[in-house]
Nucleic acid binder design. Structure first.
Lengths: 156, 156
DNA sequence: TGAATAGGGTTGCTTTACGAAACCAAATTA
DNA sequence: TAATTTGGTTTCGTAAAGCAACCCTATTCA
């Protein structure tokens, strides 16, 4: 693929995509959020080839989205757990899932039923809100020129 | 790549990633949200090869994230505009950008300064909230068993 | 009338993502 | 002690993804 790397990109979205923007990484993070921690469990749930899973887990650990902890009682037994950085992807994952549920509902699938552990109430859609909690659309916001992605040198 | 397709996946995140989960698509959507509409502008801002841009735009149009409108005064001149479905990715993009700004800040880059058009106030971080507007972390929520991604047949 | 620009399409080549399967060390079971 | 399971890593072949470069048409500008 000779893919363009975004590591040095001037845009944080590009850099974020560099870490979790491939086909598997975000799904791994998703399953980690659902509680999956072990290699074999990821493999079975995702139906991913072992080497790819290996690669992705290593990369996520490198990027500090996951941490690899040795929980071996006797020898080595590893678990992959979300770091704070990884857990911070929660709004992204939920927003993406809600978007998918809304625009590409599977006929035979129950849409995400995420609930508040404290109250049992379903979680409303993730929104961009202003300081007062009022939901905003793309059109309700603006970006000062200096903060635009393609601003001056180095686009992407 | 012989990539596994997720079209028929039981998981809406997987299906969403199938539409905007590649390296370029979400960046294209991002730039579209910033106002970019024309082929050449996307190309210059993103530094993407023309055939790839061609392919991605077509795919986004196919998936109804963008619409291709002929704005030619005399001949053909096209613009790619966000559809409602595309605009609905706003929370995803903003959340991702905020995540990137928080965890991978570029030394020389201004973090996203998104502001409410009405008030001029900066936009606070996108959160998952409960019905009362209280922010929730991964640990504050649960998913009824039937709604889990790896539930029964068909994982991913 | 010529040159430049917009909006692509096509070809060729390289790099990578991917899955299958073999391999391997440590621990458990028989 | 031998066989099996767990938890991966390595190797390999293939199918894409990616970029560069060239081509092509229609329009606009000089």
């Amino acid at each position: 693929m000779a893919r363009k790397r975004f590591d040095d990109s001037n845009c944080s979205v590009a850099r974020a995509l560099n870490e979790v923007g491939d086909w598997w990484s975000l799904l791994i993070v998703l399953h980690a959020m659902y509680g999956t921690r072990r290699f074999v469990d990821f493999q079975q749930e995702l139906g991913i080839a072992k080497n790819i899973l290996c690669d992705r887990l290593a990369r996520l650990v490198d990027n500090q989205v996951l941490s690899k902890v040795d929980v071996g009682e006797h020898g080595s037994r590893f678990e992959y757990r979300l770091t704070e950085k990884g857990r911070d992807l929660f709004p992204v994952v939920v927003a993406l899932r809600q978007w998918g549920d809304k625009w590409n509902p599977a006929p035979d699938e129950v849409p995400l039923d995420l609930r508040d552990r404290a109250t049992g109430q379903p979680i409303p859609p993730v929104e961009v809100q202003n300081a007062d909690g009022k939901p905003l659309s793309v059109r309700d916001v603006f970006v000062p020129e200096a903060s635009r992605p393609g601003h001056k040198k180095n686009s992407a």
